[in-house]
Simulated assay, not measured.
Amino acid sequence: MYRQSNLFLEKIIKENINNLGKINGISIIIVSHILPDKLDFIQILSKYFKIEFIIPKPKSIDKNTFDKLKNEFDILQITRDEIYKNQEIIFEKIKNIQNKIIIIDIGGYFSKIIKKLEEKFNNKIIGIIEDTENGHQKYEKIIKNISIPIISVARSVLKNGEDFLIGQSIVFSTDYVLRLNNILLHNKYAGIIGFGKIGKSIAIDLKGKNIQLGINDINPYKGIEVLTYGYNFLSKEELFTKSDIIFLATGNYGLKGEDFENLKNNVILASVTSSDDEININYLIENFETKIINEYTTKYTKNGKNIYLLYGGNAINFINNAVVGEFIYLVQAEIIHIIFKLYKKNGLNNENNSIYSIENNEKIYIPQLWLKYFI
């Protein structure tokens, strides 16, 4: 599969060279999950651009992939919070880069310091490409304060297949961890907070397993969509009262503060993204007694009420490498396409103070090529 992906991604680059011309003097900074399906992508990029350094997402590191990458690239092991607290580390690295820079981000790692980067390095950073919904939301909050273009693939049509399969993998990995605890998913009432693409996929999978479920989303339009799918739309209060297990799929603090006090006793919590984007863990630590049950399960107890948090509140599917197969290469191809557009400044700017996305008609060649290579 990886050799085929290599050919496909190489073809995407050649298509862009044919259309936009060769590119010179571009450096890439990458925030990435260090998983097998990222290896070809990073190595292909390094043939055409200078990879300055890679920041691994700490909860999604495959050791074999990490060992291969560290032999070829500069790996900077730093968390999103550490970037904000120790900004000089990033400033020092960027100061020594001679080329123009494009940042490929996951989860808004640079969102808190991008204004300072812009002020400090003028026009050296020519764009940021964000891959995830929670990162998209982080950049949305600051986009009006910067001139650097932010291009998001989080809501791209090319990401639909990946997001659907992520939802399926969330259910698979949750079921796996529950079975390690001698618990079966099938007789639980499931709640889902967030009815975006991944939340919707979780609902479809659970419904297919004949599991009762209720869904909440703060967007009333999503509430209507929930009902059109034939699911139960619940207030948060109702969902807390009913749910034996809750899937958190908002990317924007699905649970925080006193929400934890209102959860059902012995509730199980599973997240689709990083804990610092979805769950206020500090509240649990400060207000509940903590007990490690096993590698993937932590129990929080207060006044006789138990809350079981899976995988520390991080994306549960990464315990099984979050496999989505060949669909991952669609988004990787779009990121390559965006790199070329940023370099050529072809219609990408921040004049409207909004996050940019690539129109479907412009990138239709990507799924056309993908179908030739993978079916």
Rank of each mutant, 00 (worst) to 15 (best):
G25I: 09
Q168M: 14
I146L: 03
Y109T: 04
N210F: 05
L39C: 06
A154S: 00
L69K: 02
F73V: 02
Q98P: 01
G107M: 01
T298A: 02
E362L: 10
E10S: 15
I106V: 15
N262F: 13
P367V: 11
K256D: 05
K242E: 06
E278L: 08
I364K: 14
I364H: 10
S5E: 05
Y2G: 10
E258M: 09
K50P: 07
E225S: 10
L39I: 08
K112M: 14
I142E: 05
I12N: 04
L371C: 09
N361G: 08
N123M: 11
T301P: 05
E82G: 11
K188L: 05
Y356N: 15
I126G: 07
E52Y: 09
I335T: 11
N64W: 10
T228W: 08
Y300D: 04
E133T: 12
I268P: 06
Y2P: 09
A190M: 04
K85Q: 15
D244A: 00
H337T: 12
N306Y: 08
Q98C: 11
T301A: 04
S111C: 12
V331P: 03
K372I: 09
Q87F: 02
K345R: 14
N71E: 15
T273E: 00
E334N: 07
I54Q: 04
E359H: 13
K11W: 07
L348Q: 10
D37K: 08
N182F: 12
P58S: 13
K11H: 12
N306W: 06
K11Q: 07
R155I: 09
F41P: 02
I83M: 10
N265Y: 01
F247S: 01
L180M: 13
F41Q: 02
T301S: 14
Y329G: 01
V171D: 01
Y253V: 09
S169C: 12
Y109N: 08
I150E: 04
Y231W: 01
Y365M: 11
I192C: 01
I319S: 08
I44S: 04
G135Q: 05
Y329F: 07
F340T: 07
I26V: 15
N232T: 10
K372C: 11
L7I: 12
Y229N: 14
I355K: 03
K116L: 15
D62M: 09
Y109D: 12
P149E: 03
F164G: 04
E162Y: 06
L7P: 00
L69R: 06
M1I: 10
K14W: 13
M1R: 10
I148R: 04
R179T: 13
F247T: 00
D74A: 11
L255S: 03
I202K: 01
I338D: 13
I204D: 05
I279Q: 04
I193F: 08
I268G: 03
K209E: 05
G167E: 00
L165K: 10
K264H: 07
Y356F: 15
L117Q: 02
S243F: 02
Q332I: 06
E130V: 08
I30C: 05
N317S: 14
I316P: 01
I114W: 03
N24S: 15
Y229M: 13
I143A: 04
R80W: 13
I166Q: 08
E351F: 14
L20V: 09
G230N: 06
Y373P: 00
F164R: 08
N280I: 06
S156E: 00
E289T: 07
N86Y: 06
K242F: 09
K59Q: 13
S243M: 03
G325V: 00
F91C: 02
I42C: 04
I103N: 05
I44T: 00
